[in-house]
Computed example of a mutant assay.
Amino acid sequence: MTPRDASDANDNRWSDLGRPPLNATALRRALVRDGADGGLWSDLQVVTATGSTNSDLVELAVSGKADEGAVLVAEEQNSGRGRLDRRWTAPARSGLFFSVLLRPAGIPVERWGWLPLLTGVAAATALSRVAGVDTALKWPNDLLVTVDGEERKAGGILAERAERAGTDGVVVGIGINVTLRADELPVPGAGSLALAGATTTDRDTVLRAVLRSLEQWYGKWRAADGDPAASGLQETYAAGCATLGRVVRAELPGGRSITGEAVAVDGDGRLVLATEEGVQQPVGAGDIVHLRPA
């Protein structure tokens, strides 16, 4: 689907006064910096609707039409994708659906796997600070909030390689439910900032906070040559990870599963499970089911 630019086509701009559109001009003014002393964000575009911001930004990156720090935001996403090719849909302007392009040149490629975890740390810390919502991380890339005493998923992260000769990059997509109401939840385990009692649901404010936090964490990680320990990323992720200390089931590719206590996140970003057989088994990919509280 071809994205529609928010400045050119927004026929029902005020159809839901509780969900005003993002102010793209103000966001660019606050976040995009030019010149040698500029920050990470090189461009920010807001479109009214698209299939997937990740797919669009990957295409732009591969074709050479996007630089590092490009941000693409959609007011509505109708083919958003999560891990394991799950669909992500929500009413228009009820959340933040955006992707960023990172080109960590000079950082060992084996450390690029930390980028979605880094994004989770950046988003969780920003949401806790700006919206007053205690946000936890479910390994590897879910954002959890508490609604009526229960953990609910309010956001997710998906990273994809954008490969182009000499300029490989990673597009990281982020989806956060902001004002989603109880009757709009796609599944029982979903939540939103509003349902978690956020002190603000102003999407401009939340988006600025998340992008500034991501810029800060990305800068620290790059300065440490992508070392998750030296940058403080590994320790901070573990401190905010709701999966650690729990008995979980890891549903692995190929239909296999492992059950054990999640005891650590290792230097490669893998979840380490201690099984009943006394084996510590690292898990690099799979679906994690929390079986018991910590």
Rank of each mutant, 00 (worst) to 15 (best):
R4I: 11
D5M: 09
D5A: 10
D5L: 13
D5G: 03
A6E: 11
S7H: 09
S7W: 12
A9E: 14
N10A: 10
N12F: 11
S15I: 06
L17I: 05
R28I: 10
R28M: 08
G35R: 05
W41G: 01
W41C: 05
S42H: 10
Q45E: 10
V46C: 07
T48Y: 06
T48G: 04
A49Y: 04
S52G: 09
T53M: 08
S55A: 15
D56F: 01
L57A: 04
S63F: 06
A66E: 10
D67I: 05
E68I: 07
E68R: 10
V73L: 08
E75L: 07
E75M: 05
R81H: 11
R81M: 05
R83H: 06
R86H: 15
R87P: 00
T89D: 13
A92V: 11
S94G: 09
S94Q: 13
G95A: 12
G95H: 13
L96Y: 07
A105L: 09
W112D: 02
G113K: 07
P116H: 09
L117Y: 11
G120C: 11
V121L: 15
T125K: 14
L127R: 13
A131V: 07
A131H: 09
G132H: 09
V133T: 10
D142M: 08
D142R: 10
D142T: 06
L144V: 14
L144E: 03
T146P: 03
D148M: 08
E150Q: 14
K153T: 04
G155P: 06
A162R: 07
E163A: 13
R164I: 05
G169P: 12
G173T: 05
I174D: 03
G175Q: 12
I176G: 05
L180P: 08
R181L: 14
R181P: 00
L185M: 13
P186Y: 10
G191L: 12
G191M: 11
S192M: 13
A196Y: 11
A196F: 11
A198E: 13
T200P: 03
T205N: 00
T205W: 00
A209T: 04
S213T: 01
E215I: 01
Y218T: 12
Y218E: 07
Y218G: 01
K220Y: 05
R222Q: 10
S231P: 03
S231W: 11
G232C: 13
G232S: 11
L233M: 12
L233Y: 13
A238G: 01
G240V: 06
L244I: 15
R246C: 14
L252M: 14
L252G: 04
G254I: 03
T259S: 08
V265I: 14
D266F: 03
G267P: 05
V272G: 04
L273R: 02
L273N: 01
A274G: 00
G278H: 04
V279L: 14
V279N: 14
G284C: 02
G284Y: 00
A285T: 09
G286E: 08
G286I: 04
I288A: 06
I288C: 03
I288H: 04
V289L: 12
V289C: 02
L291N: 05
R292Y: 08
P293Q: 15
A294M: 05
